[in-house]
Amino acid sequence: MNEVQITESLKGLPGWTFEDNKLQKKYKFNDFPEAMAFLVRLSYEAENRNHHPEIFNCYNRVELALNTHDAGGKVTELDFDLARAAENIF
């Protein structure tokens, strides 16, 4: 996807940004178990797509970064699909 396509697609994903060739978002939860429940549910979505995000978790915070390694580290529709899945879980 080119930058125009990415920018247009981001309009449907509040809070997501495009930086360093990655889609990125920071989530905040009430506590650690809530953050972990989100990550467990997301892990099934990622595994079903054979598409695995970069994840950072510290207590009630989760940060996701998405790009497609098979596409040379570029953002593809697969990244947007997983971002939409994360939003549905959240």
Rank of each mutant, 00 (worst) to 15 (best):
I6Q: 03
E47S: 06
F90E: 12
L78S: 08
M36P: 02
D81Y: 11
N50M: 09
I6P: 11
M1P: 10
R49F: 01
I55V: 15
K11P: 03
R41H: 07
N50Y: 13
D79S: 06
K74R: 15
L39N: 06
F38C: 05
D31P: 12
E45P: 01
K22F: 03
E77Q: 15
A83T: 09
D31V: 05
S9P: 04
K74Q: 11
F32T: 00
L39F: 09
T76F: 10
D20M: 04
G72K: 14
G73Y: 01
E47W: 06
T7Y: 05
F38E: 00
N48R: 14
D79F: 14
K28F: 06
D31N: 14
E45V: 02
N30L: 15
A46K: 12
V40I: 13
V75H: 04
G15L: 07
E63I: 10
E87K: 08
E45T: 01
E3I: 13
E19K: 14
Y44R: 13
E87P: 06
R84L: 08
N21V: 00
L78N: 13
Y59N: 08
A71I: 04
L39I: 15
T76N: 07
S9N: 07
V40K: 12
K25E: 03
A46I: 08
A85P: 04
N60C: 09
Y27K: 03
N60D: 10
I55W: 09
L39T: 14
D79A: 10
E54M: 11
T17S: 15
C58W: 15
E54V: 08
L64R: 07
L42E: 02
G15T: 10
A35K: 11
G73R: 14
F56T: 02
F18L: 08
I55P: 00
L42W: 08
